[in-house]
Design a protein around this nucleic acid. Sequence first.
DNA 1: ATAACGATGTTGGTTTTTGTTGATTTTTGT
DNA 2: ACAAAAATCAACAAAAACCAACATCGTTAT
Lengths: 257, 257
Amino acid sequence: MQSRSLSKYSAEILRTVDMLGTVSVQELSQILGVSDQTIRRVTRPMAERGDLSKVHGALVSNKSALDPPFLSRMSVNRDAKVAIASEVAQIIQDGDSVAIDTGSTSAFIAQALRQRKALTVVTNSAFVASTLAMIPGNNVSMAGTQLRDHDGAAFDRAAFEVIERMEVDYCVLSASMVHPTKAFLVHEQCEVDIASAMMDNAKTAIMAVDASKFQPQDRRPALRQPAFKEGDMLVTNAAPGADFDVALKGLNIRVAG
Amino acid sequence: MQSRSLSKYSAEILRTVDMLGTVSVQELSQILGVSDQTIRRVTRPMAERGDLSKVHGALVSNKSALDPPFLSRMSVNRDAKVAIASEVAQIIQDGDSVAIDTGSTSAFIAQALRQRKALTVVTNSAFVASTLAMIPGNNVSMAGTQLRDHDGAAFDRAAFEVIERMEVDYCVLSASMVHPTKAFLVHEQCEVDIASAMMDNAKTAIMAVDASKFQPQDRRPALRQPAFKEGDMLVTNAAPGADFDVALKGLNIRVAG
DNA sequence: ATAACGATGTTGGTTTTTGTTGATTTTTGT
DNA sequence: ACAAAAATCAACAAAAACCAACATCGTTAT
């Protein structure tokens, strides 16, 4: 255990709360055979330390896996991502073939692409795959087997093999941050590798990033996406400043709104 | 998560809404044993935060947005499938490994299994895969590459290779109809093949079919699922009649209610 | 022995939540 | 298009949960 228990009840309380997810103060006082006041006293410092959370009437576990990170990211900058997604869905036409990477923006793009018909899709995101696979007439390939747990994306060898087999019109990529000179940055090497494989097999690359990515990020990403070629596109929701001219040179920029 | 649950009911409400997809305010108030007004009060800030959506009369999950063809099948016999799913989720324990086939009942079971932790999952359904992959701690493998368009399931050679690599505690299977002597029937050979591969590599098979499948179906399925072994389970929502004794011999039958 | 201490239960007053009521809006059925 | 039904909202009183202060009871140190 971390640091030391502040009370002889702490461990038992934490165990119970984590197991049940939510426990009312009353229940807990009966389980431990102490007064409700004692529970409150003991849990207050625990809540301050972040071991658990208090709400009026109950205690809830902090370790609860109720709301996985991926889905909560779906809601930040939702409006911008929806606008960008519908812009991308206008670029891609019925019958086109497209490779789509993982990420929350790509999830919105997949939603928007449901209005297109007869798409050929290859993606390493299980979420994107299941979203588009159920449209009659689409031809969807899931690249990869082993799914990463926070976002359901695959980066194994099979993923690359599938992507490299396909020849697509567009690939849709994302990034965690845009840097004035280093261009598009992400956090993990495997994301770069997938992006690279998709770009190699696509006629046109479409980079989709919302405007907040032009600001410095809390967790600074360090890896550069592969260089874009003339005619590749950038779709965002606000025109980038002139200081990004170097990074975005040659890109066909579309601002959604 | 998770800024913070705003009420002691938040977690339970979110879990229920996400599991069922849609719940009326009335239902929820009965489930939690509080007034409908309280549900409205508690869910308003949740809706503002984007945890769920409110419509007149009900709450709908924000998680996976799926609509047309697949969803229509999702809604027939919905209550029965939900009951069966939660029964199956009680059989399978935290940490177990499980193979899951495609089909609407399996989709509900995947939803119910979100409450389990540390699962190892292999499935040929992209929908099931993306549902369970995003639970932190789960280990999910997507079997197959080429996805069938109406349900997003794979039946290619890669699918079999992945399934045959795994050794699981349970496999969860479905069927289109139950016949008094021929047992479990489905429409397509590829479904039988997948079921067979899953059963070969699972300690215990769980067949999940709602009671309506014990009636003759409009489109009569013709292909028999592989024979079950002693100790395999049948989960359904109404006790089958005695005329099915032959087909169900040796099966451990659980009736959800 | 007894004073100091810590942990717990109890009490009373304050704050938050909840159920109820009735008016208002939305949906449904004719 | 209208009326009936269902769902929502605002407001208020009752209930539940909370907190601070004090009383009690072991334990420990002097």
